[in-house]
């Protein structure tokens, strides 16, 4: 180590201003990621927020500041209310069922059963497949006359039914697809968490005479609560950002029966080119999701045992 003369106060200030070579390197290394993040995440988010207060620019008339006009239009739009209702029904239909199924499958696969690896893989397949492909497969299931469901029904003497073409069943149909897709994905998280639970806990419970159900209710389920919170937040977010299989299967129809919020945003922005309305609706959706996530943390955090 070389010895240095004690620095004067002026030198110290100069040193702190002049960037050392390590600082420059650090910023250079951060630059690519920061650029991409700013360009494709931060700026669009900010721009959306700003655009939601302006009118949609048209060829003859630029964007003008309209304040909360876009938001007022949303409130007046009956299709928004229908999309919101649809989305709430969709959430209520998908979240508890997919989480429940995921938990059930994970507990089952976690126990020693024959062909466990195969079953695990089978459960995870829906997550690996692209949603567009999956939606096409399901489209075939639901097709009237020659679809899988129709063929099964006709084998038992049932009449053919247009599942996706009817206002009464279309939403249920897309809900089932979402459940099928989500459950396998959430199962992986539950399975990982279950494997963290020491096998000796199960053995201790067995020695004490606890039934499988008692052990699940009193030990496994409470120990899985951190995972449940994580999965729940993800499930809520996923329920409100579903769009791909709606586009492939129903395009929001019939008569907006399967129009969900993100699909409505897509429709407003890229079908009607009313980008300001889409921006405002995006802000509404984001605020809502943020509020729900926060509420979940606040209410569930207290009941959770973290290891």
């Amino acid at each position: 180590m070389r010895t240095e003369a004690p620095a004067t106060p002026l030198e110290l200030v100069a040193r702190s201003i002049r960037p050392s070579s390590t600082t420059v390197h650090a910023w250079l290394l951060l630059l690519p990621a920061m650029t991409l993040l700013a360009l494709f995440t931060h700026w669009p988010a900010l721009a959306t927020f700003i655009d939601s207060f302006f009118s949609t620019p048209r060829p003859k008339r630029g964007a003008t500041f309209v304040g909360l006009e876009n938001y007022r239009q949303i409130v007046d739009d009956p299709i928004f209310w229908q999309a919101l209702t649809n989305n709430l029904l969709f959430a209520i239909g998908t979240i508890p069922v997919s989480i429940g199924l995921a938990l059930l499958m994970a507990v089952w696969v976690n126990d020693r059963i024959a062909g466990r690896t195969l079953v695990r893989m089978a459960y995870f397949t829906p997550t690996v497949l692209p949603m567009i492909a999956v939606a096409n497969i399901w489209l075939f299931f639901y097709t009237p006359q020659y679809g899988l469901l129709a063929q099964l029904l006709s084998a038992f003497g049932g009449a053919s039914y247009n599942w996706l073409g009817s206002k009464d069943t279309a939403l249920l149909c897309v809900t089932i697809v979402a459940v099928w897709k989500e459950a396998g994905f959430f199962m992986i998280f539950y399975l990982a968490a279950l494997q963290q639970i020491a096998p000796s806990l199960g053995e201790a419970a067995v020695l004490e005479g606890a039934s499988r159900w008692y052990f699940f209710r009193r030990v496994q389920f409470p120990l899985l609560m951190p995972t449940t919170l994580f999965v729940l937040i993800n499930a809520v977010i996923n329920a409100f950002r579903t769009v791909d299989h709606i586009i492939v299967m129903t395009r929001g129809g019939p008569d907006n029966a399967t129009s969900l919020l993100l699909f409505r945003i897509y429709e407003l922005g890229f079908a009607f080119w009313d980008t300001s309305a889409a921006a405002a609706l995006t802000m509404v959706l984001l605020t809502g999701l943020g509020a729900i996530a926060l509420a979940q943390y606040i209410f569930l955090e207290r009941r959770i045992h973290y290891r």
Binding site: A198, E203, A204, V206, L207, E208, V219, L223, H305
Partner: peptide
């Protein structure tokens, strides 16, 4: 006979306490 009906108790190496 299943473990619970053997009238034995057991202490595990890892103690197997329920953390929650």
């Amino acid at each position: 006979v299943p473990p619970a009906r053997r009238k034995v108790s057991m202490v595990f190496q890892s103690y197997a306490l329920f953390p929650h």
